[in-house]
Design a binder for these strands. Structure first.
Lengths: 328, 328
DNA sequence: GTGAAAGCGCTAACAT
DNA sequence: ATGTTAGCGCTTTCAC
């Protein structure tokens, strides 16, 4: 079996509490005694049992992070930033991917809570977060990132300015002479997709045409079929606004060769190396992660002000694909 | 304060142990009693304290994963696969990025061990893993992925066949008529980089020329400088083999416009959309993660056979850049 | 400066 | 089918 504090204590010829003092760096131990204890610790290969500490002290020094998918570059960037902040505060990170399934989001959150994480950062997949209420009442701070919680939950949020980003994209294309601008995006049940659609629609105003909107799965076949349908219209689109990185890439594959102006939401590696370079509305996933994590730790330090709703700006990066005119 | 089993017990008018039985789904509880307990649980909003369970039972149902960087697509793919297997076994995942710093790798591993993770999957950054010995002796299974442990540690490993991959790449380029093939890769202190260099060197045989090798930081300026130097040689390279995804992308940026054949280690999104498509030696990060995690759970189930050393094959995907001849 | 005792919330082992 | 008891390894409290 592993050595315990008790073992170290008898090996060093001191009381358990003295070992505890040394291990925790508490003052009031004679240097010589401390040295004896440290020697015993090394000799036995002792390492403190965190579960026991947690049980007694109540603090797990663990943060839970629920995202949609670690394998998605947006969320892996966000994860890395959260991790940095968490480690910087001497804590560890429990993380899990919901895979866009509300049930799994809930399971992950509840499992994290059963482990008594000190705080939670959640990119929600579901619409209903009433199950979080008892946890919030127990005092666990929760920050929602990228998407807000369902109705009735008053928690901190860190979101990108999705509608403004869509507006920038559409204005940019209008400015280059396009009037027929198609939109390809996620199911509007997803907050970010709905917001981007809203920005697109409101900016287009009278130019909006629902036949130019497709919000189905980001699969190559689906996207290709929808684009084919749109290009067969009397007045086909001359430009395309894609609602996230996955749609941008899928659209690029589906469009191969066809000359259409394109602006995509989300920046991605190699966007500058394609020909033409892909114009995007860029978010900063690391920034979002950092801001969310820092807000969480502010709460953990005791800030109990009213819930904050931080909106991060996005910015358009022109690289060529969004600067083509409808005529050339 | 949060309700405990004791609270639930008195609320339901039963003994503590009965609540424990219901919570853990143990048999031998009268349905009516169980129902009363469940009602009390719901009413009080009870959720089991995992730290207490862990302290008593010794099993944390937690796996620790140390990688180099979650934000790197290779490792985020691996993470996602590990997570899938871990969740499938009813466990959670503690993960951390070493950032290629041996000190941080060790800190993460030791912190995970202090939390008494049931098992560890490690992509090592350091060379010395003797610090793991006591943990291994305590019975914690450890699987090394992507890179082997330092000398003297006999643990399971799951590695890609790096040297064979490099051989395939070089043979492919030789087969297309190249004799001057440059190599750009990571510091050979990193196992995978050393193996790929070895494969490259051994396959080239007498054609090897150390002036065509660069193993410095994958920064644009460094890579550009090294390539410029190589192209100024009397017999400049006509082909390039890049040692990992980061170098491939950096080289593509540095090469802009210049006609050189290219094969890169690691596949990446959009490799097919560039012009020409980028020929790569592809690994499968999900596969590696899945295999490592499954091996770990096999150990947790009690398999105590000799340590296993699994080598995963890689495969060359021709897309154009590797099929250019030196003459056209 | 050091130590003894209590108990965190749960499960394991043993009653009843 | 249900309850009682002990104790996991630590921190907290208070005594010396």
């Amino acid at each position: 079996m592993r050595p315990t504090m008790k073992d170290v204590a008898s090996a060093a010829g001191v009381a358990l509490k003295t070992v505890s003092r040394v291990v925790n760096g508490e003052p009031g131990v004679h240097p010589a005694t401390a040295e004896r204890v440290r020697t015993a610790i090394d000799r036995l290969g002792y390492s403190r049992n965190e579960s026991a500490r947690v049980l007694r002290s109540g603090r797990t020094a663990t943060i839970g992070l629920v995202i949609e998918d670690v394998a998605d570059p947006f969320y892996s960037g966000l994860s890395r930033a959260v991790e940095e902040v968490v480690i910087g505060h001497g804590c560890l990170l429990l993380s899990g991917s919901s895979g866009e399934e509300p049930g799994r989001e809930r399971e992950l959150v509840e499992t994290f809570c059963a482990r008594r994480v000190d705080g939670l950062i959640v990119v929600p997949a579901g619409e209903d977060h009433t199950y979080l209420r008892s946890e919030l009442e127990a005092g666990t701070p929760v920050v929602f990132a990228d998407r807000p919680p369902g109705a009735g939950l008053d928690v901190d949020t860190v979101l990108a300015d999705n509608a403004a980003g869509a507006e920038q994209a559409v204005r940019h294309l209008l400015g280059h002479g396009h009037h027929r601008i198609a939109f390809l995006g996620d199911d509007p049940a997803i907050f970010t997709a709905a917001e981007r659609l809203r920005g697109y629609r409101e900016t287009l105003g009278g130019l909006f045409d629902e036949r130019l909107v497709s919000m189905r799965a980001p699969e190559l076949e689906t996207v290709r079929a929808d684009l084919t349908r749109m290009f067969a219209l009397d007045q086909p689109p001359t430009a395309l606004f894609t609602g996230n990185g996955r749609y941008t890439v899928t659209a690029l594959r589906a469009l191969r060769g066809r000359r259409v102006a394109l602006v995509g939401f989300d920046d991605f590696e190699l966007a500058d190396l394609l020909d033409p370079g892909v114009t995007v509305v860029a978010q900063d996933p690391s920034w979002m992660g950092r801001v969310a994590a820092e807000l969480l730790f502010r709460r953990l330090r005791g800030d109990s002000g009213p819930s904050e709703h931080i909106q991060l700006p996005v910015r358009l990066i022109g690289r060529g694909s969004g600067e083509m005119s409808p005529y050339d």
